[in-house]
Simulated scan of single mutants.
Amino acid sequence: MARTKEFDPDVALQAALELFWRRGYEATSMADLVEHLGIGRASIYATFGNKHTLYMKALDRYAEHRDPGLLTELSQPGPALPAVRAVVRRFAHEAGSDDGRLDGCFITNTAAELGAHDAGAARRVEASWNHVETLLHSALTRARAQGELPEGRDPRALARMLLVLMQGLRVVGKASGDPARVRDAAEQALELLD
């Protein structure tokens, strides 16, 4: 007869996500996971696979629940450019706040730590960035169609610039104790939308 699990895999996955997010992949050992999740190594392997598979599952969970307000913010009826500006300013504020600075963004952290040598991580990062870029592109295309953005501006190129800026804000915000650094960078970039 099969033994029933004595833990909730969903709760364990969330706990693993939080630990990986805070410490990174390489700095998190299986012993750390055993201690943090409060379940045995064999149970972790049986439920989630190895450490890498668990990390990828945690990254998938993060991506599924990432910034649910972003779509809502960027697809509101009416003027689109104020929404784009508000999103960039929110990213800058979060990156410069104590909470945002300490953990950063799990996607951005993964890109920096694993993106260059882990194809699975790179695919997940790219999918997340494509999602954000698509939302920004759609809002900027709408802004240009509504006359908020000059005709000569390329919504795709601007969306890509803002995506790179927002990711950069998260990296610099995580390492810097000066919130003005990310705020000033965001404001300068937003001037390109005028």
Rank of each mutant, 00 (worst) to 15 (best):
A83F: 00
R61V: 02
N50R: 10
P77Q: 06
E94S: 08
Q76E: 12
A92G: 05
W21T: 08
I44Y: 01
V87L: 09
M30P: 00
G78F: 04
R90V: 05
A16V: 10
R85Y: 02
P77A: 10
G24V: 04
E18I: 02
V34Y: 05
A92L: 04
D60G: 08
S43A: 14
W21D: 14
L19Q: 13
K57V: 02
E73K: 07
A86N: 13
K57F: 01
L17Q: 15
Y45S: 05
R66Q: 12
H36I: 02
A86Y: 05
A15H: 12
Y25E: 09
Q14R: 14
R23Q: 15
L37H: 05
L81G: 03
L70F: 08
A42R: 05
P77E: 09
A42V: 04
D32V: 05
G96F: 00
Q76W: 06
L70K: 06
D67C: 12
V34A: 13
L59K: 04
M30D: 14
G49T: 12
R66K: 12
Q14L: 14
P79I: 05
G49F: 11
L13A: 11
G96Q: 04
A80I: 00
H93V: 10
P68I: 07
A83C: 09
E18N: 15
M30W: 10
Y62S: 00
D67Y: 12
P79D: 13
V87W: 13
E73I: 06
A63V: 11
V88H: 01
S29Y: 08
P77G: 07
A92K: 00
A86L: 08
A83L: 03
G40P: 03
W21Q: 13
L71Q: 11
Q14P: 04
K51F: 06
R22K: 15
A31R: 08
I39F: 01
F48Y: 13
K51E: 02
K57T: 07
L37W: 02
A46G: 11
L81A: 08
H65T: 15
H36R: 10
G40V: 05
S43K: 08
Y55M: 09
A42D: 11
P77T: 10
H65F: 08
E26G: 12
G69V: 02
I44S: 00
R22E: 15
S97E: 14
D32W: 06
G38C: 03
Q76F: 02
A86P: 03
A27C: 14
M56W: 03
F91R: 02
L37P: 00
L37D: 01
R41C: 04
Y45V: 09
R90Q: 11
R41Y: 10
S43V: 02
Q76I: 04
A95Q: 04
A63D: 12
E64F: 06
E35K: 07
